[in-house]
């Protein structure tokens, strides 16, 4: 039992460029997502079929959530937040396929996404409030809270990424322990619980927190 990414090979034989199993599975999920998107949007009609309806429901749900938290800018952030949600969701769910690991159980993925969200939220904060206006916000309500605010700000991508990472890895550890202790069908509902339910919930939480960070940064 060894949770976490395993190095499979090295790119160009360079020991600084490892290729892990999680990286390969994340490529696989990307390919699957893109194929699915292509199939789903190949023949879009004004009277949608089942698949189109489902995809539209997904997109409009994300859009409505965005519209509630970032009024008037839902269309601008829809691709970004939608991709985070879909990518993390598929990354969580694909771990339930036997022989595949969850790419979200790799801190490199979660931290990478959290850093992208971190950069985007600060970019949006500066964009909306001006550089000085945004920086001034860190000195409020009183200036001596500035270090605390900065630490809090830097903690965000860490908590953001470790929450997802911890949930997925923790779930995986519990599952493998139960597989070792209790044989047969007992682990199956637990595996479904951690793989499907927790996976989707965590994807939702990851996306919601990304929206919240951007929303907070925009308000200064």
């Amino acid at each position: 039992m060894n949770p976490g990414p395993r190095v499979v090979t090295y790119l160009f034989g360079n020991p600084n460029l490892p290729v892990t199993d999680t990286l390969i599975v994340s490529w696989l999920s990307i390919i699957l997502i893109v194929i699915f998107a292509r199939v789903a949007t190949k023949r879009l009609t004004l009277k949608p079929g089942r698949l189109q309806n489902a995809v539209e429901l997904l997109i409009t749900s994300i859009h409505d959530q965005l519209e509630a938290m970032l009024p008037g800018e839902a269309m601008r952030f829809l691709p970004f937040i939608g991709t985070i949600f879909i990518y993390v969701g598929v990354g969580n769910l694909i771990g339930t396929v036997p022989g595949l690991v969850s790419p979200t159980g790799d801190l490199n993925l979660t931290l990478g996404l959290a850093l992208v969200v971190f950069l985007v939220s600060h970019y949006e904060g500066v964009r909306d409030n001006g550089l000085w206006g945004y920086l001034k916000g860190f000195g409020e309500p009183v200036i001596f809270l500035l270090p605390l605010n900065i630490v809090g700000e830097l903690a965000r991508p860490i908590s953001h990424s470790f929450r997802l990472f911890g949930n997925v890895v923790g779930g995986g550890i519990i599952i493998s322990l139960i597989y070792q202790v209790a044989p047969g069908l007992i682990p199956v509902p637990l595996h479904a619980w951690f793989g499907l339910f927790v996976g989707l919930i965590q994807a939702l939480i990851f996306g919601m927190i990304a929206i919240a960070y951007i929303s907070v940064a925009k308000s200064g």
């Binding site: 460029l17 490892p18 290729v19 790799d106 490199n108 993925l109 931290l111 990478g112 992208v116």
Partner: peptide, 10 residues
């Protein structure tokens, strides 16, 4: 370094 791959993936 896979973190950069992951960001690029995203």
């Amino acid at each position: 370094w896979t973190i950069f791959w992951q960001v690029i993936n995203f």
